[in-house]
């Protein structure tokens, strides 16, 4: 933690101290149409905000309802993440939650999530569901509470200060033996949604599961992501934000940059390390915060760059 944050009151320092079991998110800086991630709580985030035109924060995989090692208090770590976003000198324009709000799609878990997110100072939170949010009802409860209601399938788009944002759903109608799935209907909509945009429009596309074959043996990918990418390729700056794997992974493919976010609840192992995905149970209580993060994005007008910054709860 940098000294220039210390005047944000002993309270912040105190809650960080109490957050041995903490989780966080990612702070994203939009710089001239290119996204940059920066760990929240890092002094560099404040410095790089100077030339950003706007920022938003990404929170992911809060898994409300999970209560096992290494995190017995996922509500507390989500709450700390929201507080960390609130503590940013420049308020992010909005929050993105990239799915797995809950662990088991239970109404009381959605209730808790809603309660914690109400503590955010952000004017708006955009959500996409994770596979944990659609158990038993194909997401009916999720969409009733958090849906944008633009399309029956739940996907949506919006424009914010010159940047086009697209929220995709890739956790429904999954086929046996497959990965995440967008489906023909959503891909047709995406094509139509992007058709009127000039190639100079910066794009931010977000969905829960990685939209690139990050590690298919563990289900970390989306079967028809290549079709979506073919629609995005003509644009000069495309940032793809995902959750699901509870760790930061990045990949650049031409003008498309892929990022996965940390979880606010618990870390998962690096691709292929160990027998399978799932919580890293052996993380020591004092070390958990290093694995959890918030993402904040700031945008600089007039430049074709977004600044994406990662923050960990440290």
């Amino acid at each position: 933690m940098q000294d220039n944050h210390d005047n944000e009151a002993g309270g912040r320092r105190q809650f960080l101290k109490c957050m041995a079991w903490a989780g966080a998110g990612t702070l994203w800086l939009m710089k001239g149409g290119v996204l940059r991630a920066q760990p929240l709580g890092d002094g560099a985030a404040t410095a790089s905000m100077a030339d950003a035109s706007f920022s938003f924060a990404q929170i992911s995989d809060s898994h409300i309802g999970f209560h096992k090692a290494p995190n017995m208090d996922v509500v507390g770590t989500l709450r700390a993440s929201v507080a960390l976003v609130n503590a940013q000198a420049a308020r992010p324009d909005f929050l993105l939650h990239t799915g797995d709000l809950t662990h088991l799609s239970k109404p009381e878990e959605f209730d808790t999530l809603t309660g914690v997110m109400q503590e955010s100072h952000a004017r708006k939170v955009f959500y996409v569901p994770g596979e944990h949010d659609v158990i038993g009802d194909n997401g009916a409860e999720f969409f009733r509470r958090f849906g944008e209601r633009q399309q029956t399938g739940g996907w949506y788009s919006f424009d914010h200060r010159g940047v086009h944002f697209v929220g995709l759903i890739n956790v429904l109608d999954l086929k046996a033996g497959g990965l995440g799935s967008l489906g023909m209907e959503q891909l047709a909509w995406l094509k139509k949604d992007l058709a009127g945009l000039s190639a100079e429009t910066p794009l931010v596309v977000f969905a829960h599961m990685p939209l690139w074959p990050l590690y298919p043996p563990w289900g970390w990918g989306t079967d028809d992501s290549a079709e979506a990418m073919s629609l995005l390729r003509r644009f000069g700056s495309v940032s793809v934000l995902n959750g699901h794997i509870h760790q930061i992974q990045q990949k650049v493919e031409g003008n498309i940059t892929f990022y996965t976010a940390r979880s606010t609840a618990y870390p998962q192992p690096a691709p292929g390390v160990g027998p399978g995905p799932g919580p890293m149970k052996e993380v020591a209580p004092g070390a958990l915060h290093r694995y959890l993060g918030i993402r904040d994005v700031r945008h600089v007008q007039g430049r074709q760059a977004l600044a994406v910054t990662e923050e960990v709860l440290s």
Binding site: E131, V134, A176, G177, G178, L179, P217, G219
Partner: peptide, 12 residues
């Protein structure tokens, strides 16, 4: 009878 996990479909 083929089956899978509907939320982790690579599990068959």
């Amino acid at each position: 009878y083929a089956y899978y996990c509907s939320i982790h479909p690579m599990m068959v």
